[in-house]
């Protein structure tokens, strides 16, 4: 095998795959959040899973995926539930309710994380917040003959699997519950009257969101995951008026942001003559922002330029 190709497969392919799979999961869920006008809920959940992750980590003492998933999902559900409680019973405006809950959860997470760090537990706060795609690598077999075998699959990093599972879960969810999601997002009152449990759909969405966030925290970090949730969906919102196209476009935009972000971050500085590479997750967020900005200006019907031209509001 060629050494550059090997290097690509070993160093670049796994983080790229992990980022792409989490991008798919996030983009689809994010589309529904944006359409349901709950974008900030994505923000809130992604902050709130932190204490769940840390506590699960402290309890089990391992970085294995399953307990962390459970911990994060529990924390995510708790926060979604508490936001509902605060909003309904506290008579607090929804965004304020989110602000209260997610910042409290997040503070709890930071405090427990610092405590864990004080006890020399290997849990880097920066990794959770900004993601460390760079640490995902792979030692595949060095020649093509042995490359295509089952044992190769076993050596793929767990993060890639985790985000792939999240992506397939989300896709499956949307395919199976397409019409239920549609009606509960569009017209909750009719959804209720027809006997579909919109609360159940909402909670399932929150569980999946927590799963997607956890699957992504290793790759893009728990804060920058918001960029993947919201930006591609908002970009797609500006480009289309069909739900199916919307979902596909947001996935495409997310993947484009991921790959361009990865390439710019990993190779861009070298092309410019610097030795140091820059943070990949941050670059992915920036790229998704660039796409959104481009769409806001130049989208065919809803962009600023098109609106100016047709004089439409």
């Amino acid at each position: 095998m060629d050494s550059t190709i090997y290097q690509f497969i070993a160093l670049d392919l796994p983080p790229l795959l992990a980022a792409l799979f989490s991008a798919i999961a996030c983009a689809i869920l994010g589309s529904y959040l944006v359409l349901r006008r709950q974008s900030l809920l994505g923000d809130a959940i992604s902050h709130s899973v932190l204490p769940g992750i840390v506590v699960a980590f402290l309890v089990t003492g391992s970085r294995s995926t399953i307990p962390i998933f459970i911990g994060a999902a529990v924390a995510g559900i708790c926060s979604a539930f508490l936001i509902e409680v605060v909003r309904k019973f506290g008579n607090v405006d929804e965004s304020a309710a989110m602000g209260v809950i997610f910042s409290t959860f997040f503070a709890l997470g930071i405090l427990t994380m610092e405590q864990a760090a004080a006890r020399n537990v290997d849990l880097d706060p920066d990794c959770l917040l900004h993601g460390q795609l760079e640490t995902i690598f792979w030692y595949p077999p060095n020649d093509w003959a042995t490359f295509f075998s089952w044992s190769t699959l076993g050596s793929v990093p767990a993060e890639v699997y985790a985000s792939a599972i999240a992506a397939f879960l989300v896709i499956g969810f949307v395919v199976v519950l397409w019409k239920e999601l549609l009606i509960s997002s569009f017209d909750p009152a009719l959804c209720h009257a027809l006997g579909f449990r919109s609360d159940l759909i909402h909670h399932t969405l929150m569980v999946l969101l927590a799963c997607a966030v956890v699957a992504s925290f290793k790759t893009v970090g728990s804060i920058l995951v918001i960029a993947l949730l919201v930006c591609p969906a908002a970009t797609a919102r500006l480009c289309t008026d069909r739900l199916g196209v919307h979902l596909i476009l947001s996935v495409v935009f997310a993947c484009v942001a991921c790959s361009t972000g990865y390439i710019t971050a990993a190779f861009g500085p070298q092309w410019l003559g610097y030795e140091q590479s820059v943070n990949v997750a941050g670059m992915i967020a920036v790229m998704s922002g660039v796409l959104l900005g481009g769409a806001a200006c130049f989208a065919p019907r809803y962009g600023i330029v098109a609106r100016r031209r047709t004089g439409r509001r």
Partner: peptide, 15 residues
């Protein structure tokens, strides 16, 4: 949605 998008993108740029 704009708030969520801007805060994450700016934070990403900061990172």
């Amino acid at each position: 949605c704009a708030i969520a998008a801007v805060l994450s993108v700016f934070f990403g740029a900061g990172v």
